[in-house]
Design a protein around this nucleic acid. Structure first.
Lengths: 353, 353
DNA sequence: CAATTATTGGCAACCGGTTGACAAGCGGCT
DNA sequence: AGCCGCTTGTCAACCGGTTGCCAATAATTG
């Protein structure tokens, strides 16, 4: 008690363990090494590189690991290797059901291959999207962009850093998975033409949407082939509300059948037209795009050009995992089929009166 | 060249940089330190501990960081500190729209506070759920469980390791956010009673669902109060399909009004009943729960007891962030209000014929 | 102007795995 | 028996920040 305030180096204040790691901080490879009586690096090899250690050492280590209830520390692993077993998915709008199936498809495939999915939303903004993407780049092995809003160069820039796969859009030099709209659209237009429609309107989506442009092209081509007039109308936003708002223009256009950029627009449009007393499909046929959740809740249920969204998500994830592992394959665009789902909202035009 | 095989310590084999980090591996605090002419630890302090370095050094470092386009390596930070700025959200079913809004609410709040949301799905299985939770525990700072299926003890065990917040369920000792069903249910039952209904059926959800039990209790209580008979029916699964399947039982029950565990069941039930020629609400009233996306797509649009799902997600995230930072607050259950959304699927019973 | 105290910066150890380089062990071959 | 080459294990250096401790410097005060 001579120097009460001197910080005495000889006073062992014991292992304080600053962070206290609430309780039983999980076991490390060093603990395993001690139990199994081998070197930590041997443990590391046994647990990651198969066949690098002898069978009996392997077993010894595995038993020790099991006993200690060991789990690798992902950060410790990620630090030297850069591998994170994680990939990011950025969607434009989490509440837009178009993405639900994409998310699920990607999530399922990721989990099956022991990857973790990190989700971010861009709120339909190219700026937010880019920010989210940049933020993610640091923590993921690869990125999936679903219907990205940023421009091609930005996407290519991202793709230079880490593998990137794009859904619902084609970007030169970046692998992508896109529904091939032609089959579905021509089925739809042919069906409409067969029902006597001679003028169809297409309600477009957001101007930056690559897919909207493709769909309009598809509609034009199919209409030409079927000798049907096609007119293009603009929507304010690709939602139910946007669909309601475009109803005026639709009526004014004189078209007897409408294809919309997506199902949400179709549903809103149908609600508004019905509210105005029109009968679907007797007075007007409506065909949506995507076949989202809820498309068959309406009365009549919505005819729509289905995109296999879940498949898109899952294929994109598979593509990404391929890039990550085989690291060769340029793996360009994968096309998935679309098809017409004929329900009640389209059909023969009844003579007025 | 006398001892060609002796590992000569004097031979500097130079910085090999094994990984090659495709091109311009991002800058580190060491690079910044070099540019700014200070010690790396000073850089670390400048960038994380505010006020720990002098203003001019701070500026020097920030400029250097900006110039080098520096971003911290989250793994390097997480390794010694354990902090990851990430939290997990586990939902029972990604395609169930009930969770969409929860996901979005949580995501938005997380992003606003510079946290990243990691999503996992349990496919309605307690086992998968627990596995996903365990896997996440290693990489996140905290966990949100939406409508968890595992049992209380397992949840408490998780909560011992890291902060956990539960949505749609109460677990002793674990903070949670639950919609208070009573207000919404009593509004619904009162409305039905006022329309002359004297016997209502409740279609229950999964047996493990805590929320299903609460809703049934609420229905019983409200019915008693309004002097209305209540019968309980079981569903096979809480989906549109499950709703279709329970239609038989509903008709057999003799009830003139039905409340279902969720909107999906209500929609399926309505479809099936309408397909059998029944008119909603003239012959039977249907009331759902949650007010999910698409509940108003039906004809008639679905009357439902709305839970503020987005708010649940956002409140849960806020609660979690609170636990993470202030680390005090036991923060028990937060209740959010429910309310009846009166649409077309419920109303006065028309005399038969 | 010297002495004391408050700031600020530097050193070095650590977080927990991974991996290149090398040595020891070992069976097969001539 | 001697040599070769393959398997298996060990050593030590990293990955990129964080942080306790101490020294140097600056600011304050008698």
């Amino acid at each position: 008690m001579s120097e009460p305030k001197t910080p005495d180096a000889a006073a062992p204040r014991g292992p304080v363990k600053k962070h206290a790691r609430n309780g039983k901080s999980s076991a490390t490879i060093y603990d395993i090494a001690k139990v199994a009586g081998v070197n930590p690096s041997t443990v590391s090899r046994a647990l990651s590189k198969p066949g690098r250690v002898s069978a009996k050492t392997q077993k010894l280590i595995e038993d020790a690991a099991a006993e200690l209830n060991y789990h690798v520390n992902p950060f410790a692993r990620a630090l030297p290797t850069g591998r994170t077993s994680t990939f990011g998915l950025i969607v434009a709008d989490i509440t837009n059901p178009t993405f639900f199936d994409i998310i699920r498809g990607a999530e399922t495939t990721a989990t099956a291959r022991d990857y973790t999915l990190v989700l971010a939303e861009s709120a339909e903004s190219a700026v937010t999207e880019l920010k989210a993407a940049r933020r993610m780049m640091a923590t993921v092995d690869g990125l999936i962009l679903a219907s990205p809003r940023m421009d091609d160069d930005e996407i290519r820039a991202l793709a230079r850093d880490k593998p990137v796969v794009v859904i619902n859009r084609e970007v030169d030099g970046v692998p992508s998975v896109v529904p091939d709209v032609n089959k579905g659209i021509s089925e739809a237009v042919r069906s409409l033409a067969a029902n006597g429609h001679t003028k169809v309107a297409f309600v477009a989506g957001p101007p930056q949407s690559w897919m909207s442009a493709r769909r309009w092209e598809g509609v034009q081509a199919a209409c030409e082939w079927s000798r049907v007039d096609a007119v293009r109308l603009e929507s304010t936003k690709p939602t139910v509300d946007g669909g309601r708002q475009v109803a005026r223009d639709v009526r004014a256009s004189g078209a007897t059948a409408v294809l919309t950029y997506n199902d949400l627009l179709a549903i809103g449009l149908m609600q508004e037209l019905q509210a105005a007393g029109m009968v679907v499909p007797d007075q007007i046929s409506i065909v949506g795009f995507d076949d989202i959740f809820g498309a068959d809740f309406t009365t009549p249920p919505l005819t729509t050009v289905r995109s296999p969204l879940g498949e898109c998500g899952s294929v994109a994830a598979t593509l990404l995992l391929g890039l990550l592992h085989d690291s060769g394959e340029p793996a360009s665009t994968v096309r998935v089929e679309t098809e017409l789902v004929l329900r009640g909202s389209s059909g023969r035009l009844l003579p007025a009166g």
